[in-house]
Design a protein around this nucleic acid. Structure first.
Lengths: 345, 345
DNA sequence: ATCCAAAATGGGAGCGCTCTCACCATTAGT
DNA sequence: ACTAATGGTGAGAGCGCTCCCATTTTGGAT
């Protein structure tokens, strides 16, 4: 079919012949085996370079049973990816660490045209990757469980909902982070502190709400369900939730993501109220846009890139036997005080 | 090392034995070869399902010389990825189309810790992918040329700087799009139309400037070099460039990306000027954030997702002999009139 | 029943690599 | 001088699959 005449690729045997040595020796040179005379090595290396020889990965994998490939599974919806830099940051960190350790990354994004089941099956049926990173899981997602049953090596970003004890994961201390935020608001004199939550089927959303509630209890502030508005991590969600919340006249709101906080700020401004004088806001994430002039959001910083970095490193360590499962890391957050919480400058 | 005892994976032979047929027959079933009796097929399928058999991709690739893997090369800097949804959108579209056609996608992101040379070499040395998509190229980048010399099948997003005639690419009609924008501004009575350009080593930046200049010429508007400020596609770049440009008192500005336009608007507001009364703004891209209430940007829409979709489809078509190189597609843009250009509502 | 094409199945070779083992050459130890 | 250890190299098997070709089975048509 193709009009391009593909000259057959060189293989080990060809190079061996050209260099006047055996296949084994060429293989040793390629794999940096020390048991080759320096002179021979140089000569073989020269022949390899002259003929642009590149080893056939498939053949190597067939023998070694390893591909040096990591799978990255991102079950998120299209629209979230477009506006929220969380996943780009995570992807960046993961690929960077993987590349540093001589691994490549295969990407599975849930596309709109593919059914979740078919998508799961595709991931499960794939034997090309040595290990997997699940960028996120939501409650009721069976993928992690099924991977566990298959004996696949994988690591989850965000503590899994079920069987967390026997799984490898990296996570942020979301409960504590949310507590920090609420306690900070209380310290500044706020008493009617509301919250706009993330998705309740995502562990970080759930944990941040838990942190909010625990903080209220610890601070002896009255718990008022009307001050809790469930949302979905999106900018629009934050906007709409804040409009509802405003009717309860809160003097502060802990918003479970920066993205929602931007929407919340918009709603507040539209209502003719001012931040932080009328309402103090603390977000969560510390995304790049949090520092934009119009916003300058007080927020709880989570180390997204560090998380990605450790996920890749952890998975590779597990694969290479450097770590023993379960590999579990929970990183602390940091409160970043800016303009929206009313802290005197 | 690993404490997990990995039971050896099933192979074709095992399944054949269990099903009481030959390896060949199982292979036919797995590959949907019609030359198998329906009864046999069902039986084999049952055995496969019972034992969770998954074919070994490496072994298959070794024979077929194909991996069903596409490489996606994104040479962009970290910070751009975090704030600009362009690449996430592109990645999404590419992976979606690839998945639909039974291909998987391998991702190469230039990480900060890896030198460009080493990164190129990594891509060049990789024989795992059937074909490559270069998400972007900048002037002087030798990768495309070297891939061409190697006989690799690849497709570039954005017309390549050199040897474009013999390369496969998808592109936006940037020149025409910029013309549209400037002509629209002129039609609304603006006469001192400035521009904030993108990076001049990226073809889209270059083309959009060309379009701006051509439009001025065609409209018989005076060309004033001081009204051209070179920038870099970033929000901060847009902000700083607009501050400089304001000294020239333009009554309209064509900003070569929405991202820069957001920065430009910020600079204008800071200067106490109003949009569109004092200055009309047209952006380029039509990114999701362009519609945000505070902005509602008039812009030139480019079909990013369609571009990604066609890049994947084109590459796969090329690989499978359905298309003959060169595969070259240039998609038209569309002017989206919103609030920032002063068009009466 | 007989024949024959077509359908279905099996066997073997080989893809390009790694890895074990055997071998040869060199050097050191007695 | 003879052995033993060491460093360097080669040969062969085999990873799990596809694909060609040979062989067997099947189901009409005669």
């Amino acid at each position: 079919m193709s009009e391009v005449t593909r000259r057959p690729m060189m293989n080990l045997e060809d190079i061996a012949q050209l260099a006047g040595v055996s296949r084994s020796t060429v293989s040793r040179v390629v794999n940096n085996d020390p048991r080759v005379r320096e002179q021979t090595r140089q000569h073989v290396l020269k022949v390899i370079a002259e003929h642009n020889y590149i080893p056939n990965i498939a053949a190597r994998s067939l023998v070694t049973q390893r591909t040096q490939l990591l799978g990255l599974y991102i079950p998120y919806f299209v629209s979230d990816l477009f506006t929220d830099p969380y996943f780009p940051m995570l992807i960046q960190a993961i690929t960077t660490r993987a590349t540093e350790q001589e691994y490549d990354v295969m990407l599975w994004l849930r596309g709109s045209s593919i059914s979740p089941d078919h998508f799961h099956q595709r991931v499960l049926d794939n034997r090309m990757v040595d290990g997997l990173i699940l960028a996120s899981t939501s409650r009721g997602d069976r993928l992690a469980q099924r991977l566990l049953e298959r004996g696949q090596t994988f690591i989850v970003n965000g503590r899994p909902w079920e069987n967390a004890d026997e799984m490898n994961y990296v996570d942020t201390a979301n409960v504590e982070g949310a507590q920090q935020a609420v306690e900070h608001l209380a310290r500044l004199g706020r008493r009617r502190i509301g919250t706009i939550t993330g998705r309740m089927d995502v562990i970080s959303g759930y944990d941040r709400l838990t942190g909010y509630r625990q903080a209220l209890e610890r601070l002896d502030l009255p718990y008022d369900p009307a001050l809790e508005v469930q949302s979905d991590f999106s900018e629009t969600g934050g906007y709409l939730s804040m409009r509802r919340l405003l009717q309860q006249r809160p003097d502060a709101v802990f918003v479970a993501s920066d993205h929602m906080a931007v929407g919340a700020l918009r709603a507040i401004h539209e209502a003719g109220l001012s931040v932080p004088d009328d309402i103090a806001i603390v977000g969560f994430d510390d995304m790049p846009f949090a520092t934009l002039a119009a916003t300058n959001l007080t927020t709880v910083r989570q180390p997204v890139q560090r998380l990605g970095y450790l996920a890749a490193e952890g998975l590779i360590g597990l694969l290479e036997g450097k770590f023993t499962p379960p590999y579990q890391v929970v990183l602390p957050t940091q409160l970043i005080v800016r303009d929206t919480c009313g802290f005197p400058a």
